[in-house]
Nucleic acid binder design. Structure first.
Lengths: 234, 234
DNA sequence: TCGTGAATACTTGTATACAATTCTTGAGAT
DNA sequence: ATCTCAAGAATTGTATACAAGTATTCACGA
């Protein structure tokens, strides 16, 4: 729909290594704090150490992996405090994005977003298996659409980093029904704000949207207090 | 004074390559749009291609270098529009940083910042050769001090990326005397805001500070309209 | 039994060699 | 003269080999 992060067919070895390692982190196959041994990964993925190294470095700069010089690389750990910081930052930045988007949005994009927002609501009502996953995907498209509408490459790059991370945290299992409903409501309200070309309104709703997600995530995390999977569908 | 970016003695080859290439870009030895040939750089720096490659990748993620798959790496080009975006983003983020810092600043840091702000003013009054460079250095410490006071590692990482880039643009030659005076005034006012623990005040001043820098930079750039060096001392 | 330290095994860091892709050059045809 | 296309040169991408540093283990002494 919108420009996806990795449209390339993953032809290159480093791309292969990157997506593979990333997938393992997201799926939990490589849990937080796990050591990343270059040779093992290379062997398992079927490429040499060189592209694995490059992939790990990239993941490190994106914040998914922690690098220790001359020692090893670990899957980054996320404390409650980290999450709070992350989402506060996202609230600010995505707020700016929404503000910009409100001023620049064209009618085609608006229509697409409206459809996405509605579809999410329908999907929730219908329920069914994996409906959360489907909502998450739609949600992803929704946010990326807004980002694209803001038409601000530099902002996009920063956001990409911030938005990817919540996904790592085994996203969206921790919303209560009320919270999910509220979240989807935000989407609808955002569309209205865009339609009205009201930058301040859009920014405010977006901030609320992200901060509400933060709250849900943090509450869930605190409740468990252990290192079980986390979540959010902001 | 505060934790600098590269305290390591540049022992590793990739560190050497990184700082060397970076220096060449900043000094203008490698102008915008210049091609980065891995082998040449490796030869000139005195390391193999491997660390050069890693360094270039890092510079690319930091936005200083543009990567073209299977082709080459270029020194990133900066349009006026890019600058506007960059500084708008900085205004938002550094505003947040200042806000956080105001709430958390301890008296030692406050004292340091006060000294820095005063020293900058004195340095300007006294003038002399290279006084702009000295101000720039102090300015750097000032902003990094605020960042440290915010005590928010993730924010810091993002900011680092954004703050580094203006430096690349052959920083601070384009302020008029009035603009420079205003900029230094902002610093003093920021200290006052921190002292008062007024987060909103601090945020506002910081935003003004950065946006005023943006204005000076963009005006200078527009005046030349060509690709001659740019500037800012935000 | 527990701490200490040196030898060893292992992992990362760097260099080099090879493969694959892209850019350049030049001959030929229109 | 200009365009097309193929062959060659040059450069990036990947693999492997080697060097340097780090962690582990096991013997020895307190």
């Amino acid at each position: 729909m919108f420009r996806q992060r990795s449209p390339r067919v993953a032809s290159s070895a480093v791309e292969k290594a990157y997506s593979e390692i990333r997938a393992r982190i997201i799926s939990g196959h490589l849990p937080q704090g796990a050591r990343l041994k270059e040779e093992d990964l290379a062997l398992e993925i079927g490429v040499s150490r060189t592209p694995v190294r490059e992939a790990v470095r990239r993941l490190a700069q994106e914040g998914m992996v922690e690098l220790r010089p001359n020692s090893g690389a670990l899957v980054a750990k996320w404390s409650v405090d980290d999450l709070v910081q992350l989402f506060d930052l996202r609230a600010t930045l995505e707020g700016s994005v929404a503000s910009l988007a409100a001023e620049r949005m064209d009618s085609a994009t608006l229509a697409t977003l409206r459809t996405l927002a509605r579809t999410m609501e329908v999907t929730m009502r219908e329920g069914g298996p994996h409906f959360l996953e489907r909502i998450a995907e739609l949600n992803d498209s929704f946010h990326k659409g807004i980002l694209a509408a803001a038409d601000s490459p530099r902002l996009s790059r920063m956001m990409a980093q911030l938005v990817e991370l919540p996904i790592v945290l085994r996203t969206f299992n921790c919303y209560s029904e009320e919270e999910l409903r509220r979240s989807l409501g935000h989407h609808v309200e955002l569309v209205a704000a865009f339609e009205a070309r009201d930058a301040v309104w859009a920014e405010s709703v977006m901030k609320a949207h992200v901060l509400s997600a933060k709250h849900a995530l943090v509450a869930a995390q605190r409740a468990r207090e252990s290192d079980t999977p986390l979540v959010a569908t902001a």
